[in-house]
Design a protein around this nucleic acid. Sequence first.
DNA 1: AAGCGATACAACCGCAGCCGC
DNA 2: AGCGGCTGCGGTTGTATCGCT
Length: 308
Amino acid sequence: MGRSPCCDKKGLKKGPWTQEEDEKLVEYINKHGHGSWRSLPKLAGLLRCGKSCRLRWTNYLRPDIRRGPFSPEEEKLVIQLHAILGNRWATIASQLPGRTDNEIKNLWNTHLKKRLLQMGIDPQTHQPSLTPNGLVPRLPSSPSTRHMAQWESARLEAEARLSKESLNLTPSSADKSEGDYFLRLWNSEVGETFRNYNQGEKVISESPISSSSTKDGVLSGITTEMGIPASGLSSAGSNHNDDSKSCVEDVQPGYDSCSSDEMGDSSSESALQLLLDFPCNNDMSFLGQPDCFSSYPDMFPQSHFNCS
DNA sequence: AAGCGATACAACCGCAGCCGC
DNA sequence: AGCGGCTGCGGTTGTATCGCT
């Protein structure tokens, strides 16, 4: 198809990195930062393509990498985040300091996915798998989850749109957009109901839009495709990804782990924060099952999750 | 001890988005 | 507006290690 290769592969080495190569790469990046990955190998005297160098650095050599087994808390977090974000490993990784997307991806594929399957949970939907008779068991309604996901998706979408509009300084062509509608709802008492829930008051009730979907039409409970939209969140979240480049390079040249996830890192972070702040007290029902974690003592011993 | 399958993890590949020209 | 280069991401593969027979 005429697609140009990422680099001239002639004479370039592939496969496992040697210690010598690692040292060269680390030394170069510590001195100069990674700069352009494409030109780095030549400058650093490596017979690798830039892509390979970047991968080696971000997944293995970065000084802040935390190696070793995942703690139960981390595993729980990965599952929670996966329930919301799906296979957005980089976004998930940004919530686990010192962990890389590759590592999390591997964890998921080798451990968590299998464990969920063993428990009869569909790892993609985080819902119970098909029953023997082929029926999808109806979720013992987890309204809080769905509300949260739906509200967040809609709200973020609206905020992103508004943000974009304000940036463009174009007079908002009347707030007729779906997103604006949701934003208004968010700010209305209905939205407040949801927010109250998050503050520990379990007062959520079926809202008029509880079964609505995003424009992607993929929000069914917790799905893997929430389509969390772009940045521009005004209030919530620390948004450390807002400036993903500068936020790290000032500190650590070449470190780009707080990835600039194309769309939505900053805003999804607030969503994530919401999720993480969600009333815990071992009631994990918002993940799609009533107290789904306490149902899996093998997987997550209770003692690990006392959110005192 | 050897063979073999399962598992874990590092690395590669290709696609898509962003950005500058 | 279109094109091409660069980068990051997610899926997949390759390989080393482990554990069982």
